[in-house]
Design a protein around this nucleic acid. Structure first.
Lengths: 192, 192, 192, 192
DNA sequence: ATCTAAACGAGACGGTACGTCAGGTCTTGGT
DNA sequence: ACCAAGACCTGACGTACCGTCTCGTTTAGAT
């Protein structure tokens, strides 16, 4: 057993940092916030942040994960198309539930373009889990016989998330219930 | 005609700035380059850059446009699916033709998340023109009777570019001839 | 005769420059004004200033000379002490007559510390002429027999102007009628 | 006692800045030196200079004070005139002892004309202390009965420093042992 | 009850890049 | 040849953050 010598990590500081980071990112915008700003606002030494996180993006990403603990449910709605629509609605709802989250998500994706290490974390905790869920839904459809042998799950998954991210990042369209329905139809048709 | 008083803008400086900016961005990476660096390398005063462009991103974007003057052709290949495949192959080829362009494009999209003014320029000169071409191809398909009355062109366009950007930004898949073919099939099927 | 070819120098521009320079220096303070500022305010090209003057200080110095054309009179008041008092009162009056002149004079002296070329001009047009007048007064006193053979005119002159500049630059005392009288007494006593 | 929180100010950086500033000012000339130059030469961040001093002039002034810690002695030489001559010789020696100091002193006086805040510091640490010493010497003379009741100490002090500064700034004469003797005689005579 | 060790807040540190400002030069068309 | 206009190169400015460091203090387990 690795005996823990010395003062243990302060949970209150950890929470203060995460809460402050996410709050500032949502209200002032991700680019505007600084490590100094987070430290000052959270009544925390800057070193305490750098001791546990490598970058501003890493802090915000963990804050985002902490905040979005509510798992996305994937109940069996009986058919592929309804399963898909339910999933998309759940996914899109997250961004709309709390103001500013969409902007923070966009910043995370942007940050992943500049920081290779962060990109790995981002894929691991944001991109991949959501992809896995959608693959599961398609697999369930295959079991039901709704997904044909020539279907291309990877392309369908990329198309679905692609539309979402594209509209989010390039600001070319709404992300709402209408889109959820349209995507469900497109993927269901593409699965045949 | 308003007679141009004073010393006219130096075309050689303008070109030196654009060429240097794109060269540095491609070789060293967009984040690594600085206004000071561009100015020094282009033998130009920093003020001369700030006089004509508001930000590093704006310079690189214009350099990108200047560089990519070659228009994307959209010949009539006879059928919707072949038209689409041709277009996607042309589009994907741009990024592969010159090293580092993909990385610069990703940086532009990232920058658009941080800078609202730049986002407008980016949509105007990068996003929208390419969307227009794809819409044209679908319209041609409608004239041929290949696009049904219930088809949703906007969704199809978003799906195509969405997959491309999603794979580019989230690094979840290749962008190649195989994808061009798959997307052509998906969109053709979705158009019925 | 050297025929003057080409467009002759614009007297109106020259005056506009000098007037603007002195006006701005007196109102905004010498350090605050810029060549660009003078040019803009005088509706004049910057090159037109640089064509005729080597520096901001040179412009202001000429403006000062143009402005202070009124010669200092040195009437024979009958005795050395009264001659001196009259001279000092005349000299001190210049600075008080128009607001801001003292500040411009201080700036000229300051500029002379930084710019060797300007220092020559400054001595030639500001320092030396005033010294010459005071030397003349002392010489007149010698003719009258008021200045003894052991008197040291140079020291006395330096003492008089020294007090004036010292109080002006180091802000350690008033420059007024009282000082004029005191200096006159000191110099008269020192001349014996 | 207010406990010193946070990292304490680095004495080594402080010294490096002051030494570098004075060295550069003396060798290259005050105007030529820049904050960037001092920072680079002293291996110090520019912010570290700005954290503790408001301007280049303030740094050089403190460096000058640090450098000139050697107090000017005012031994009782027995008579007012000899006391004065000793003081003037001591004062004039400072400037001659180390090359370039005179030029830095002139720059400080010049800077005081442009920067009101700096002028206060300059008077407080350069002008006033020296005036106080001379006033003391005159007071000692009064105790001895050498200074008459009608003498004007302020005028005499201004005359002495006035000559010195005037010759320094306007470059109209030497500052040497001869001047020290002449000033001593003038002030002694003026004190009667 | 001390001792050791790590985390803590605070804040100064060396650095890099920023965007601005002014200086002095150059290049137009027009007088 | 001179002029107004204004773009040009240069170089210093003062600021903002970065990520690191060095204080004194706090909090635990080990001695």
């Amino acid at each position: 057993m690795p005996s823990a010598r010395g003062r243990p990590r302060s949970e209150s500081s950890r929470c203060a940092i995460l809460e402050t980071a996410l709050r500032l990112a949502r209200t002032k915008g991700y680019v505007q916030i600084t490590m100094d700003g987070i430290a000052a606002e959270a009544n925390v030494g800057k070193q305490t942040i750098y001791r546990w996180w490598p970058s501003k993006a890493a802090v915000v990403l963990e804050a985002l994960r902490e905040n979005a603990r509510v798992e996305i449910e994937t109940p069996d709605c009986g058919s592929l198309q309804t399963d898909l629509e339910y999933f998309f609605n759940s996914t899109f709802a997250v961004a709309r539930r709390r103001r500013g989250i969409d902007q923070v998500l966009r910043a995370m994706m942007a940050e992943a373009q500049y920081d290779v290490e962060f990109a790995k974390e981002f894929r691991r905790y944001v991109i991949e889990p959501r992809r896995a869920v959608l693959f599961d839904i398609l697999e369930r459809g295959r079991a039901r016989g709704e997904v044909g042998p020539n279907a291309n799950p990877t392309l369908l998954v990329d198309a679905a998330f692609g539309v979402m991210w594209y509209r989010l990042l390039a600001d070319v369209g709404e992300i709402n219930e209408k889109l959820a329905k349209e995507l469900a139809i497109l993927l269901a048709k593409g699965s045949e």
